[in-house]
Simulated scan of single mutants.
Amino acid sequence: MSTESQTPHRGRRSVFVAGIVMVVAGLVVLGYVAWELYGTTIVSKQRQQDAASRIERAWGSGETTVTTEFGSAEALIEIPRIGEDYRVPVLEGTSDRALGAGFGHFDGTAGPGEVGNFALAGHRVTHGEPLHDLPELRPGDEIRVLTREKTYVYALTSGGEDLIVPFTSIWVTDPLPDNPVRGGVEPDQKKGQRLITLTTCSELFHTDNRMIAFGKLVSEEPTR
Rank of each mutant, 00 (worst) to 15 (best):
H132V: 08
G160R: 00
L134E: 02
V115A: 13
Q6A: 10
A101M: 07
I170Y: 12
G62Y: 09
F103I: 04
P222G: 08
R124I: 06
F214Y: 15
G111N: 04
E220P: 03
L198P: 02
V21M: 12
A52P: 03
V181E: 13
W35C: 02
T168V: 10
T94V: 15
V181I: 13
A52C: 08
W59E: 11
G104Q: 05
G159T: 07
Q6W: 15
E161T: 14
A51V: 13
G39R: 01
G159R: 03
F103P: 00
I143M: 07
A52G: 04
F70V: 00
I164P: 00
D208E: 15
A25I: 14
Q189W: 06
E4I: 12
T40L: 07
D107K: 10
L134S: 02
G62W: 08
L30H: 07
G140F: 09
K45E: 15
L131H: 02
G122H: 05
N117G: 08
N179F: 11
F103S: 03
T151V: 10
E203C: 03
N209S: 10
Q46K: 13
G26M: 12
F103Q: 02
E74H: 12
H132I: 06
L134C: 09
D208L: 14
E149Q: 14
G11Q: 11
